[in-house]
Design a protein around this nucleic acid. Structure first.
Length: 383
RNA sequence: GUGAGCGUAGCUCAGUUUGGUUAGAGCAUCAGGUUGUGGCCCUGAGGGUCGUGGGUUCAAGUCCCAUCGCUCACC
C-alpha cells in the first residue's frame, strides 16, 4: 500500500497538507505535477525541472508512450525513469483522456476501447489488463487505470452507463494490477478514478464502489471539460467527502491557479494540467500579480523582468522586451523560458498553499490571492 | 531606343478573359481563447486613392487613351 500521511488540516476549509512516499522520493502535498506526455515536459529539460521548477513528481501518458517509443523500447531502457533520466516519481495517465479527446478515432467496446493511432492510423485495442501491462513496462510510480472521461455536457443516461463501465474496468484494472509484478524492482501503485459527470448520485456511487476496491489513491476525473468552474467546485467538494481521509486525492487535468486553490480548499491533494506549459508556449505567463500576455506590443520596450517578485531563471536573467522579441521571432528559447517560469509559478503556488495550511492561514490567503490570479496585467496598465 | 510582361492590404498574390452588391485570400500586425498537451489549433480586429491622369458607360480593379515605375529580351 502507498504510504500517505496527512500532517496538517486547515481549520476553515477542507485543505490538508501531507506526504506521499514513493520509491523515487517523498511528495509533499498539495502538489502540482508538470505534464510530460511523451517522456518530456515540453520545452523544459530535466535539469531545470529539478533545480528551478522544483518538480517533485511528473506525469506521463500511457497512450502516447505506447504508440511511441513503445513498451519494448521502454523495457530495454530499463523503464521510463532511466530512459528519460528522471530520478523523481512519475505518474502515468492511462489513456482514458485520449479516449475522450481523440474520440473520432475510437470505438467503445465492453472489454475496452478500440482506437486508431493518431500517428499512422493503425488499429489498437486498450483493455484494463493491457494498460496495466504497459504501465508495468513504463515503470511509473503511480498508475492510472483505464477509464472513460465523459464530455460536457453529458446526459444522465450516458453518464450513468459510462460510470458503470469505468467501475467495471476499475475492477479489471485492479485484478490485472494484483496479478502482475513490477519489472524494475520497486513498488508501483494504482489509483481509482471516480467518474459520474456532474451528477452527484453517480459521483457518490462511483466513489463508494471504488473505495470498496481499496485503491492506493483516488482520482476525480471527468471535470474541467467545459462545465462552469462553480459546478466543478461543487462536484469536487461533494466527492472528496466519500474518499477516505487516509488516501491521496487527485483532481485530474486541473487547472488554472485559482482552480487549484479552490480545489485544495475542498480537500484535493494532487493536480496536473497542461496549462502552465501549453500557455507558456503561447506567451501567456502566470504571476502572483496576474497574467502577462507576452506577445502584447506594450512590452516591446519594457526592460523590466516579467515578474519582479519571481526568482526563476527567466525573471532573474531576462526582460519582458527580450522575451517578447523571442516570441515574435518564434525562437525556441521563448518556449523554454516561459515554460520554466510558469511551472516555477505553479510549484511555488502549491508550496505556499502547503505552508499556509501548516501555519493555519490557508483559507484567508486563498481568498485574497484568487482575486488577483486571473487579472490581465496589460488591461490594468491601459486603465 | 524597340518589343513584351507586370503594377490590387506591410509581403506574396486571386479577381481583369465576358464591366454589375460593401474588392478577397494566405502570411504578417494587433487583441482574445486554450484545463488527465501535437510548438498545434480556434476566435475577433485594424489595414486598400486597385501606380497616376483622362475617357467610354447607368455602372470601371475589369474596356479605351496617355503617362510614370519595375522586370526581361533585343539593339
Amino acid at each position: 500500500m502507498l504510504k500517505f500521511q496527512v500532517s496538517h488540516k486547515d481549520i476553515s476549509s477542507k485543505a490538508r497538507a501531507g506526504k506521499i512516499e514513493t520509491a523515487h522520493g517523498i511528495i509533499e502535498t498539495p502538489i502540482f505535477m508538470p505534464v510530460g506526455t511523451q517522456g518530456t515536459v515540453k520545452a523544459v529539460n530535466q535539469y531545470y525541472l529539478k533545480t528551478d521548477v522544483k518538480a517533485q513528481i511528473i506525469l506521463s501518458n500511457t497512450y502516447h508512450l505506447y504508440l511511441r517509443p513503445g513498451p519494448e523500447i521502454l523495457e530495454k531502457a530499463g523503464g521510463l525513469h532511466k530512459f528519460i533520466n528522471w530520478e523523481g516519481p512519475i505518474l502515468t495517465d492511462s489513456g482514458g483522456y485520449q479516449v475522450y479527446s481523440l474520440s473520432e478515432l475510437r470505438k467503445m467496446r465492453t472489454g475496452g476501447v478500440e482506437f486508431r493511432s493518431h500517428l499512422d492510423g493503425s488499429r489498437h485495442l486498450f483493455t484494463p489488463e493491457k494498460v496495466i501491462g504497459i504501465e508495468r513496462s513504463i515503470g511509473s510510480d503511480i498508475m492510472m487505470p483505464l477509464d472513460e472521461c465523459t464530455p460536457f455536457p453529458c446526459d444522465y443516461a450516458y453518464a450513468a452507463k459510462s460510470q458503470k463501465l469505468t467501475t467495471r474496468w476499475a475492477l479489471l484494472n485492479k485484478e490485472a494490477f494484483e496479478n502482475s509484478v513490477p519489472l524494475y524492482g520497486f513498488e508501483q501503485y494504482l489509483y481509482g478514478i471516480i467518474q459520474g459527470s456532474i451528477y452527484k448520485d453517480l459521483r457518490e456511487k462511483s466513489a463508494r464502489e471504488l473505495v470498496d476496491m481499496d485503491f492506493d489513491g483516488y482520482s476525480i476525473g471527468g471535470l474541467a471539460v467545459g462545465e462552469p468552474a462553480e459546478v466543478m467546485y461543487d462536484i469536487v467538494d461533494f466527492t472528496t467527502d466519500f474518499i477516505p481521509e487516509t488516501k491521496p486525492r487527485y483532481l485530474m487535468g486541473v487547472g488554472r491557479p485559482e482552480n487549484i486553490l479552490e480545489a485544495v480548499a475542498r480537500g484535493v491533494d494532487m493536480f496536473d494540467c497542461v496549462m502552465p506549459t501549453r500557455n507558456a508556449r503561447n506567451a501567456y505567463l502566470f504571476t502572483f500579480n496576474g497574467i502577462l500576455s507576452m506577445r502584447n506590443a506594450c512590452y516591446k520596450d519594457d526592460f523590466t523582468p516579467p515578474d519582479a517578485e519571481c526568482d526563476c531563471y527567466l525573471c532573474s536573467n531576462f526582460t519582458r522586451a527580450y522575451l517578447r522579441h523571442l516570441f515574435i521571432a518564434k525562437e525556441i528559447l521563448a518556449l523554454e523560458l516561459a515554460s520554466i517560469h510558469n511551472l516555477h509559478f505553479y510549484l511555488r503556488l502549491v508550496r505556499q498553499a502547503r505552508e499556509k495550511i501548516i501555519d493555519g492561514s490557508f483559507n484567508q490567503w486563498k481568498n485574497k490571492i484568487v482575486k488577483v490570479l486571473s487579472i490581465n496585467i496589460n488591461s490594468i496598465k491601459e486603465v
